[in-house]
């Protein structure tokens, strides 16, 4: 389908906890799911990745403009990959990266890792597709 994916390394589990080995594990899973040729990494990445700007309470702090300005780094990184999807394995990242796209009108989708795992296994039902774009919304719907 020629759909391209990138992945956000969550600061919390990568830089702040397990380092590059878990970032490599994350890439192993993602490449297995989407195909090596459909995966494009952001730069910089892994332990050196930029925070998306959703962490540390920023999402709830009320400083919305500052949060989006912080997120410009991430937005530009994602846009530079030209990926159709940014996969997020962290809740804060998902909320922030989703908001960055909505607010700027960027046309990537932000999807939880669990959604893609189930989609690839063919067990993702029709009500579990909130964050898929139209290109994948009707693909391999379980029970349909």
């Amino acid at each position: 389908m020629k759909i391209k994916f990138t992945v956000q390394d969550p600061c919390q589990i990568v830089r702040k906890s397990f380092g590059d080995p878990i970032a490599d594990d994350l890439r192993f899973v993602v490449k297995t799911l989407v195909g090596e040729e459909n995966f494009i990494d952001m730069t910089p990445n892994k332990s050196n990745n930029y925070c998306c700007g959703g962490g540390g309470g920023f999402l709830q702090s009320g400083y919305v403009d500052a949060r989006r300005q912080y997120g410009e780094y991430k937005l530009k990184q994602i846009l530079a990959t030209k990926a159709d999807y940014c996969i997020t394995a962290c809740h804060n990242c998902h909320a922030q990266i989703h908001d960055l796209a909505e607010h700027s009108g960027a046309n990537y989708h932000t999807v939880h890792l669990w959604t893609l795992i189930c989609l690839s296994l063919g067990i993702l039902g029709e009500n579990e597709r909130e964050y898929l774009g139209p290109d994948l919304a009707d693909v391999a719907v379980y029970g349909a």
Binding site: Y50, C51, F58, S61, Y63, A66, R67, Y70
Partner: peptide, 9 residues
Amino acid sequence: VWMCTMCQR
């Protein structure tokens, strides 16, 4: 201090 996400980069 509320805009630093404590990301440790």
